[in-house]
């Protein structure tokens, strides 16, 4: 299975390089959160847990956190800011007014 790395791997010498261009590592090192101009924020007071935002995130940068309430399985969307590129799809697609709002990055 591919390994996670903290940095992009560049093989130092021929002897370390595989004989052909095969991937051995994931892309986790690439913290795409730095691409973001606008930060989506979830207001959990308003969020109904419909998971529409999770469904439409192209990264994916929204985790579906499972929990139990009244004996029922439920989900809660949690934005992973390390990878969220700030595209705004979740904010446009969220059906609940105000459940996702945006902040300028750095505010």
């Amino acid at each position: 299975m591919p390994e996670k790395t903290e940095k992009q791997i560049v093989f130092d010498k021929v002897k370390d390089t595989p004989p052909l261009a095969v991937s051995l590592y994931t892309m986790d090192y690439n913290k795409t959160g730095s691409w973001r101009n606008v930060r989506p924020v979830i207001d959990y007071e308003k969020c109904t847990g419909c998971m529409t935002c999770w469904k439409f995130c192209p990264e994916p940068a929204i985790d579906a956190e499972k929990y139990e309430e009244d004996g029922k399985e439920k989900y809660k969307p949690v934005i992973d800011y390390e990878y969220c590129k700030g595209c705004g799809i979740c904010w446009v697609e969220c059906p609940v007014e105000g459940a996702i709002y945006t902040e300028e990055e750095g505010e």
């Binding site: 093989f11 390089t17 004989p19 052909l20 095969v22 991937s23």
Partner: peptide
């Protein structure tokens, strides 16, 4: 699983 033949820049192509 591996990806085969992915994008390779000047820092890797030469050794291949």
């Amino acid at each position: 699983p591996h990806a085969f033949g992915g994008l390779t820049g000047p820092d890797g192509y030469f050794e291949l």
